[in-house]
Amino acid sequence: MPLRAGRRKKAEAALASAAKPGIFWVPEMNALVVKDLHVTIAGQEIVRGLSLVVPRGEVHAIMGPNGSGKSTLAKVMAGHPDYEITAGKIAMDDQDLLELEPDERARLGLFLAFQYPSEVPGVTIANFLRAAVQARLPDGEELEATDFYARLYEKMELLGMDRSFTSRAVNEGFSGGEKKRTEILQLAMLEPKYAVLDETDSGLDIDALKTVAHGVNSLRGPDIGILLITHYQRILNYIVPDHVHVMVQGRIVRSGGKELALELEERGYDWARDGAAEPAFTR
């Protein structure tokens, strides 16, 4: 139910009454919802009134120029402690996330594929993932090692990763492509309800991009909502989104179908920025 430009107010009203059935019903019970979010760091406002709904089963792309606040949005959703949220809300399946620690959000089913993943020296990918999978099990339940490795190898094959990778320390000495692949491997293993992919395409050559896209596409389905954050249209040729949003200066300025990405590629962010005076909004 995409809304046309100029209907933002009504859409916001819909969000406000989202739980109630009606014309503007938004399925919050099955969506990642950001509502009128304002975020500052060191006194500077980076996200300025951003609203977004990513229902489960859909792939949404956020496109935006450098400095538009895309990565800040991703980190804030995951609960990065450096940012201050001055207004707004973030909810996942109707559960308020803002009061939760990053690990609580993760265990509830939120995954962030980092633009710049950290190294974890001395901790192998296998051990790291085992700890992460174990953390999702109920108290007292032990992870079955053989099942774990069977799944791990299956996912690695999907991503064209050699098995020897499992004994390498997480991201230590990895190339850019290896890091991104490792992020997607973790996504595949942890089976989140919602995944935010922050510039997963950056620094990838075309072959690596295809492999990563293949990995993401194979995870698509009714049980996962994906938010794809990117600077370039290129990745959207391989991971075709259901909806595209353009983010400029901390706000969504245009929303549309997958064709919006192509239009943006053609006309540039200045065109989108010009439209910011009359912002678009959609679910």
């Binding site: 995951a78 980092f114 974890v120």
Partner: peptide, 18 residues
């Protein structure tokens, strides 16, 4: 690094100890 590990579901203490 701790934030990264927490994002994978480990508590701060688990992240530290790992």
């Amino acid at each position: 690094q701790i934030f990264y590990m927490q994002q994978r579901g480990l508590t701060e203490a688990q992240a530290m100890s790992l």
